[in-house]
C-alpha cells in the first residue's frame, strides 16, 4: 500500500506529508533514481533521434524552375491570342490588371506543385505526420 495512513481521521487531520510512499523513503529514493534515468536517456536520445527530412535534390529544383517558367510563358502567350481589335479602353484595363495578377497566382501554383513533387519523392521514406491533441 502506498498510503501512509490507516484511517480517514489520520488522513484528514494530517499536518504534514500526505503523498504516496511518504512513510517509505527507500521507495521514494528508488523512484527518483528511475526519474533521473529517464532524464539522462532523454538527453542522450536527443542526439540520436532524427526525423527523416530529405533536402530538395538539384533535379527536383531544376524541374520546378522549368515547370514554373513554362507555365508563366504559356500564360503570357495565351491572353494575346484572345485580344479583340475593337476592345474598349475599359476592357484593355481589365486585361492589363489580369496580366499583372496572373503570374502571382501561378507562382502560388508552382509552389504548390513543388510541394506535391517533394511529397511524392519523400513519401516512401517519411513517416506519416499525425496530429494528436
Amino acid at each position: 500500500m502506498s498510503s501512509p495512513f490507516s484511517n480517514f481521521k489520520e488522513f484528514s487531520d494530517a499536518k504534514g506529508p500526505i503523498y504516496t510512499f511518504a512513510n517509505n523513503p527507500t521507495m521514494i529514493g528508488f523512484l527518483l533514481v528511475v526519474c533521473l534515468a529517464i532524464v539522462v536517456y532523454f538527453l542522450y536520445a536527443s542526439y540520436t533521434i532524427k526525423q527523416e527530412v530529405p533536402a530538395k535534390t538539384p533535379a527536383a529544383l531544376s524541374l520546378l524552375l522549368v515547370a514554373g517558367a513554362a507555365s508563366i510563358l504559356g500564360m503570357e502567350f495565351v491572353p494575346q491570342s484572345h485580344k479583340q481589335p475593337e476592345t474598349s479602353r475599359h476592357q484593355q484595363s481589365q486585361h492589363s490588371t489580369a496580366r499583372n495578377w496572373q503570374p502571382l497566382a501561378l507562382l502560388g501554383m508552382v509552389g504548390i506543385g513543388g510541394t506535391q513533387l517533394g511529397r511524392k519523392r519523400r513519401s516512401p521514406r517519411r513517416k506519416p505526420l499525425r496530429r494528436p491533441r
Binding site: I38, F42, A45, S46, I49, K50, Q51, K127, R131
Partner: peptide, 20 residues
C-alpha cells in the same frame, strides 16, 4: 515535462506527437 519526453522518444521526434 515528462509527457513531452515520453512522446518525443517514442515518436522519434515527431512534432505533433511530441507536443501532444
Amino acid at each position: 515535462a515528462a509527457g513531452l519526453v515520453g512522446a518525443y522518444i517514442s515518436s522519434k521526434g515527431d512534432p505533433f506527437f511530441t507536443i501532444s
